[in-house]
Design a protein around this nucleic acid. Structure first.
Lengths: 208, 208, 208, 208
DNA sequence: ACAGGCGGGACTTCCCGTTTAT
DNA sequence: ATAAACGGGAAGTCCCGCCTGT
């Protein structure tokens, strides 16, 4: 048996596998993705694969912890946290995603939701991991709403409940968009949500 | 080794299989469910199974068309259509589901969403079927909102967009509830949505 | 259960099934043909099918006895028997088949050989049936050669052995033609065989 | 439950599987042979089997390319090529095979023909592979005839056409022998073919 | 005679994880 | 650490023949 074609780069390999897996899980789903497909796509032999990820579940957990969580962090938590107000942060994110999906050909949905739907019921460790991401997401938005209220920028809204509504409607609309392969659901949902949010930020926005 | 005692009841068998499949797909997911498990659970021979549902995909389509669609119809479309107003219909449904989930031990999520998330990306026929159910759902709620507006009961809302928001937030909140195995997400989401809807129905509700 | 669409025509049905089966067995082979395909192609229900042909083997035997045998009879035995000489009979058949295949798009081979190759080794009843057809074929040609010799038309050939050679080379050439999907093998084989036969019929042909 | 004692011998395994498959395909036919039987006969696990031969078709192609082709090479092409004349080479092969079959109990036919009959119509890749073997076979014999003619050893025969006739009559006679489970067809066919060939090699042979 | 539902099993293929070997 | 071979089993599909009912 031959020793050719071997490159020692443990971290690169782990990362490559995780990327390929994140992609495949997002697009085709966890159960519908075969380990062998990932091996082939990542150009990794069975032995190397197994060395880094002994089981499919561990790979799934790694992807959730290091890719899905990061996607929520960079796609939602950071933009909202760094925005002047929750309203503006949410607006930026929503409208950015709508623009992105307009340009793309295929809508694969919200990665967190995709994984959550399929895996939450199967494994408890996975479930609690996904739970944690939802919590962080919700917390970040709720904190921002709370800050806005404290600053007198927003009124008449329950920070945590509104955060839940924002996330839920985003997730649900993405699911509809994925099913329809059309951004309209997301756009319509955002139009209405936007109108609602504006009423709570009425004063500061009006005089702009 | 034949049993010699058989009763031909094709419709009963189809129905039994579809029920078992609907249950399993809802709880464990489509890909995570093995055909053999369904055969065993329904106590149906492979031949009979194959006669009625030649492939898993056809079974999936049948379940979507005859079980998932029916669940949306009876769980959402009819209650909302027959309610005095969209607001009251939605309230009834949301609060009814929250009560149900409180009593149950396990939250398996919204059947339509479960199927949509997993199957929309895999097969186009399935996708369009699920699409149709979302359309009917959205249409029924939007029509009700429109009627309320025409009757002067509701104001300041875009019927179709608000319908999308209602469905999206419900779907998303159910997904969160499933992930957390807790009704609080759904309850919080509803609290906020409820508060919003009330503002659009403000006048007639206040004087009640 | 419905009683519609029923026509009592036992012989017609048997015949239709046998024709469809003969066709499928010839083109795709016995083992590669599913009973269900035949049912579908013949538009016959499982019950009716089973009534006429309780098992695949019985169907195969029927096809061999009533279709393959008939094909050899009408395609070889009769033309050769009724021809003035074996030489002329064989010439007529060979050249006729070459012309036919030129016009057709697909070469499915010699039906007897197709069935024989696949079934001779599997079932003894079938084997002896096929054996009988080969015997009749060989006998008819051998008899004709013998008659020609007795009439002084042919010389220097062993009737039975030459008959075997004719049949074997025809069968083998058809097999090559099927594999290549080209008539050239058959044509070339016949060219050589023809040249040989002519030498044994030298005198009567020369003075023509 | 693992055995813990394993020796990696990929080539040995491939070879063992191919041998078992060649044997089974030759004796029982391709379609009549179940993959599972091959696994059992070769004592190979499903995983290992699948690793080396992902599908039945690929196994079939491998067998054709590496076993059937080799059989034709060593059983016909080499003996004829190395013989003093085509006549003597063909005589050696034919009579050798007749002797072999006399000793054996079961006649399984010509491997190339067996495979060709069953597979030529089903898959085009297979067809062209089998075609190539026929070509090589024909070419080798035709070349030998041509050389004999050039050396003045043979006369009055068309090298390529006679090669086709030899192969066709051999194939056809083997098919008859298989059907009858008797060597007589082959022997009779050869007797006649032999007599014919002698006439073309008449002079040099007579004075021996 | 015919229509269709049905029993039981076998078919090929695939999949996840482990072991050998370099 | 990496490459490839391998173990064991299950997945979905199909197939033949029978049985019930009209």
């Amino acid at each position: 048996v031959s020793v050719k074609n071997r490159t020692n780069d443990p971290e690169g390999l782990r990362s490559k596998i995780a990327n390929v897996a994140y992609d495949a899980f997002s697009k085709r789903g966890y159960n519908a993705t075969a380990m062998q497909d990932l091996r082939d796509d990542a150009n990794v032999s069975g032995g190397a694969f197994s060395h880094h990820f002994p089981s499919k579940k561990e790979l799934g957990l790694f992807v959730v912890r290091n890719r899905v969580a990061a996607a929520v962090q960079s796609g939602w938590i950071e933009p909202v946290s760094h925005a002047p107000t929750a309203y503006e942060g949410i607006k930026t994110v929503f409208e950015g995603i709508i623009r992105e999906l307009d340009d793309q050909g295929f809508i694969s949905g919200c990665p967190l939701n995709n994984m959550a739907m399929e895996l939450a019921g199967l494994d408890d460790e996975m479930r609690s991991e996904l739970d944690g991401i939802f919590n962080a997401w919700e917390f970040a938005i709720a904190e921002k709403f709370k800050a806005d209220i404290e600053k007198g920028l927003a009124t008449q809204l329950h920070p945590a409940h509104m955060a839940t509504l924002v996330i839920a409607s985003y997730s649900g609309a993405m699911s509809m968009a994925k099913t329809r392969q059309s951004v309209v659901s997301l756009r319509n949902c955002w139009d209405q949500l936007h109108a609602i949010l504006r009423t709570h930020y009425a004063a500061p926005i009006e005089h702009l």
